[in-house]
């Protein structure tokens, strides 16, 4: 009997076409759809995830990645295209502009990525003399700040000093800090800053008084006194102050009330206008009255 084992290999020129058992199995496995999908999609995905996971498992690698990313970001941010070189402030007077510069305290040039425009705007609007601000970075590295400044409308005399208020009653600056271009009306008294509008209206109405008007005083946080020169006062009512003032001015024009020797004109009760005379006038008044009474007696 010929040997069964090894005869296949020794016989020359007779290649066995049969696949080995493992080759056959591998081919069948490869033809299995699930296995195929697993190998072609699942294995590469798994390898990628494993590699990334293994790389990230070391803290140093993560740090290096983060550093590299931030370095790259830094480089991009520091490019000259993104630099802000100049700060321009429009619509603000010199002291306000200086205050804004001081408050922002930017050390230019600076990257525009480092500028938080919203926060800067809040900062600028925190300055009391600024009503609103508009910031934008323009081409050429120019940071334009457009400021809408509060304009002082009147002077409010307080115990701490004279403050400038705008037409909404908001504090603008101390009088001592500013040089006024034009004289401003003067108010005093507690709570006067809450009713600035009314005060301004009264000042407009009191324009005919001219030089005689010194200012307004808020009394008891409810009504106004018009203070004239020589410490004469017009006590306006709580309600209808404007009408009362008009009435006084009318009386002044007709009867020259204010030219007479009165220290106080009390309009608090609109039904009854009362006048306080100066002591000299009061004496004269009494004398005249006595005279007139005597005359009546003589006539009578």
């Amino acid at each position: 009997m010929r040997s069964l084992i090894g005869s296949r290999r020794t016989a020359p020129g007779h290649r066995d076409p049969a696949p080995s058992r493992w080759a056959y199995r591998m081919q069948r496995l490869w033809l299995t759809p699930l296995f195929r999908k697993l190998l072609r999609v699942g294995l590469p995905a798994f390898a990628v995830v494993m590699t990334v996971g293994w790389y990230l498992a070391e803290d140093g690698n993560v740090q290096a990645l983060v550093d590299g990313a931030s370095e790259m970001r830094r480089e991009i941010e520091n490019r000259p295209e993104f630099q802000v070189n100049l700060l321009g402030i429009e619509g603000a007077s010199q002291p306000v502009a200086d205050a804004i510069r001081t408050r922002l305290s930017l050390n230019l040039p600076i990257s525009s990525f480092d500028l938080d425009l919203a926060e800067m705007r809040t900062t600028i609007e925190g300055i009391s003399a600024v009503a609103s601000a508009d910031l934008r970075i323009q081409s050429g590295g120019y940071l334009a700040v457009t400021v809408d400044e509060r304009l002082p409308a009147l002077i409010w005399q307080t115990r701490d000093g004279a403050a400038l208020l705008d037409d909404e009653g908001v504090f603008v600056a101390w009088l001592s800090e500013r040089v006024l271009e034009a004289p401003l009306p003067l108010v005093a008294g507690e709570g006067a800053d809450h009713v600035v509008g009314e005060a301004l209206d009264l000042f407009v109405a009191a324009a005919p008084l001219g030089e005689r008007l010194r200012g307004l005083v808020r009394m008891g946080e409810r009504r106004w006194d018009v203070v004239l020169r020589d410490d004469r006062r017009i006590l306006l009512p709580e309600v209808g102050a404007m009408a009362a003032l008009d009435r006084i001015i009318m009386l002044d024009e007709l009867q020259e009330l204010l030219s007479r020797d009165v220290t106080r004109i009390d309009l608090r009760n609109p039904e009854r206008l009362s006048v306080q005379l100066t002591p000299v006038a009061l004496e004269e008044f009494r004398r005249l009255r006595t005279l007139s009474m005597q005359g009546e007696e003589q006539n009578g």
Binding site: D16, A18, P19, Y24, Q27, R28, L31, T32
Partner: peptide
Amino acid sequence: ERAIRTAVQAAQKMANAR
């Protein structure tokens, strides 16, 4: 068995199905 394997493998390959 080897002959069967040869035939089945070739047919599977042609069919591209297990």
